[in-house]
């Protein structure tokens, strides 16, 4: 039994066809799990289903032994599940500090302490704290997005393609930040296109094909599995 589990989830958008089919994703605290697969495999959908952005037709989502399949996304956020969407994941017209403050709206206690912690994690944000996020670089924006998601002190952090559209150098930097976050005892699920790099920092990985679990295993196992290599890692 893992800390956060999506068990045998089946779901689709509206009345459309099922995008994911009996798909299972599990993550523990202090662990990075990568969800990989070809385009249209339902990676993001699986993640959104776990957050409650679309309703399950069957299956369940469980955190810390507690069933949350029926909760709204907001209520799941309150349970400690934070989400960074792929696009539009910051408030571009607000300052860095305001972004962090909004991220903590669900918290009752003093946010200044948490903001200091985030600043320690991402020093650049402290430097730019009163700048409007829209004026920051792509990598800095992603840090704001991470910081905002961490403001509720989540136990689970879900990242939808955090490195999409950033340069390789920034990507490495971001992965380093993600590892730092993991070390604060947060469980991380991320959907990634850059499979090799993602697996290299992940404890485990899932490969989805047409909405179903195809392979799973530790990062090294998947990296060395010839079939996975051939099909998804480009040889």
């Amino acid at each position: 039994m893992s800390f956060f589990e999506g068990n045998k989830m089946t779901a689709g958008y509206g009345n459309g066809p099922d995008i994911i089919n009996s798909c299972t994703i599990k993550v523990d605290r202090g662990e990075i799990v990568a969800i990989l697969g070809p385009n249209g495999a339902g990676k993001s959908t699986a993640m959104k289903a776990m957050l409650g952005l679309l309703n399950l037709k069957s299956g369940s989502v469980v955190i810390d032994g507690q069933e949350i399949s029926k909760l709204s996304p907001q209520d799941r956020v309150k349970k400690g599940i934070s989400f960074v969407p792929q696009t539009k994941n910051v408030f571009a017209e607000l300052t860095v500090r305001e972004n962090l403050e909004v991220g903590a709206f669900l918290r009752e206690d003093d946010v200044n302490k948490v903001i200091e912690e985030i600043y320690n994690l991402f020093p650049i944000l402290k430097e730019k704290s009163s700048q409007v996020v829209g004026q920051l670089s792509g990598g800095q924006r992603q840090q704001v997005a991470l910081g905002r998601a961490l403001m509720i002190k989540p136990s689970i952090l879900m990242l939808d393609e955090p490195t999409a559209g950033v340069s390789p150098i920034v990507m490495d930097e971001l992965f380093q930040h993600i590892i730092k976050v993991k070390e604060t005892n947060v469980g991380i699920i991320m959907v990634e296109q850059n499979a090799k790099q993602a697996l290299s920092i992940s404890n485990r990985g899932y490969v989805l094909v047409t909405g179903e679990n195809k392979f799973e295993g530790s990062g090294d196992e998947l990296l060395n599995d010839p079939e996975v290599r051939r099909s998804f890692l480009g040889g």
């Binding site: 996304p73 907001q74 956020v77 309150k78 989400f83 969407p85 539009k88 994941n89 910051v90 408030f91 571009a92 017209e93 607000l94 305001e98 403050e101 909004v102 991220g103 709206f105 669900l106 905002r148």
Partner: peptide, 22 residues
């Protein structure tokens, strides 16, 4: 104010504002 910030946040990015509990 917090309410004012939440208004600006909502206006800027509705989906993210909802996720942030606004």
């Amino acid at each position: 104010t917090k309410t004012g910030t939440s208004m600006r946040a909502y206006s800027d990015n509705e989906d993210l504002a909802l996720l942030s509990g606004i």
